[in-house]
């Protein structure tokens, strides 16, 4: 039995190493020195649907040229060759444009899901994808509540495509290509706080034109992409069933339980083993 116990202790050592597995990480950008997340504000009251932003995006990233335009009654979606897309709807306020792209969540589900940290919330705010780490498991796609990450299903070296807020350009002191291309003030780039202030200012200045709801201020724990809309976001088909809780919080309970299971279960099992060991000679009644 002595040998068994020694082995058991050895196993416990391994178990200890595996404990690290269960440690949920904080939202990456929030620790250390305090930096504010950058974001983008999309104002659909000002947007005229010129598609300059779509074109700028495809040109920057070398995607095939865009040939379709937003049309009432049809829905366009982002894909592995399109990172941002506009749609248009006929509403009580006339034609209203909506936008689809990565929301750059403050606490992104995709990054929490990624087992290689390929999906990564940078300190600056953009959520980026790093090809040298990604193993293509697509768990980020399963987890993202906005269905943003797209996968190249027809490639032997597939990439995950999604908006990166032009992270490289930002790091070089620039601004995202789509924002730069917009001539109508419908897209703004700045820190999240600046953008929220600006958004509120616009709502206050023209309360009849804007709905009093900044989509992304609280949704999914807050997002980097903020949207101003003339109607309530749910009337425009934005996903409002996602609630205000951050998505990684959904798995936290489970992950927090992992270390305690590792600490509690093995001694318990060993204890039961010792307790039942000598019963072997008797015909044991099965108790489960």
């Amino acid at each position: 039995m002595g040998l068994d116990r020694r082995n058991f202790l050895k196993t416990m050592g391994v178990a200890g190493a595996a404990l690290a597995v269960g440690k949920p990480s904080q939202a990456a950008g929030n620790k250390g020195k305090y930096t504010e997340f950058y974001g983008i504000l999309y104002d659909s009251v000002k947007c005229i649907g010129c598609q300059n932003c779509e074109v700028a995006c495809t040109e920057t990233y070398g995607f095939p040229e865009i040939t379709d335009t937003p049309l009432v009654g049809t829905e366009r979606h982002t894909s592995e060759t399109r990172r941002t897309i506009l749609n248009v709807q006929e509403t009580s306020r006339g034609e209203v444009y909506t936008r689809e792209q990565c929301m750059h969540c403050n606490e992104p589900a995709c990054a929490a899901a990624c087992l290689t940290q390929a999906m990564y919330k940078t300190e600056e705010g953009p959520v980026i994808w790093r090809g040298d780490k990604c193993m293509g498991c697509r768990y980020c796609m399963v987890s993202c509540p906005f269905d943003v990450p797209k996968f190249e299903y027809h490639s032997s070296n597939p990439k995950i495509e999604k908006c990166t807020m032009c992270y490289e350009r930002i790091m070089e002191g620039g601004i995202p290509a789509c924002v730069e291309s917009c001539g109508f003030d419908a897209l703004l780039f700045g820190t999240r706080r600046e953008l929220l202030t600006e958004a509120r200012k616009r709502i206050c200045a023209e309360p009849t034109k804007y709905s009093d709801h900044i989509f992304g201020e609280k949704e999914a724990g807050g997002t980097g992409l903020l949207m101003l809309t003339p109607l309530r976001p749910q009337e425009l088909g934005y996903r409002t069933n996602i609630g205000n809780e951050s998505y990684p919080a959904l798995t936290k309970g489970f992950l927090f339980a992992v270390p305690s299971v590792f600490v509690l279960i093995p001694p318990l099992l060993l204890g039961i083993h010792e307790a039942t060991k000598n019963k072997g000679s008797k015909q044991e009644e099965e108790e489960v």
Partner: peptide
């Protein structure tokens, strides 16, 4: 079989990148 980029499967194993907040990692 389901991994799109299976050659990177070693990343989470050899500790290049531990996505410890991921259930899939666990």
């Amino acid at each position: 079989l389901d991994l799109g980029r299976p050659w990177n499967v070693i990343n989470p194993i050899i500790g290049n990148n531990f996505g410890t907040s991921s259930v899939l990692f666990l």
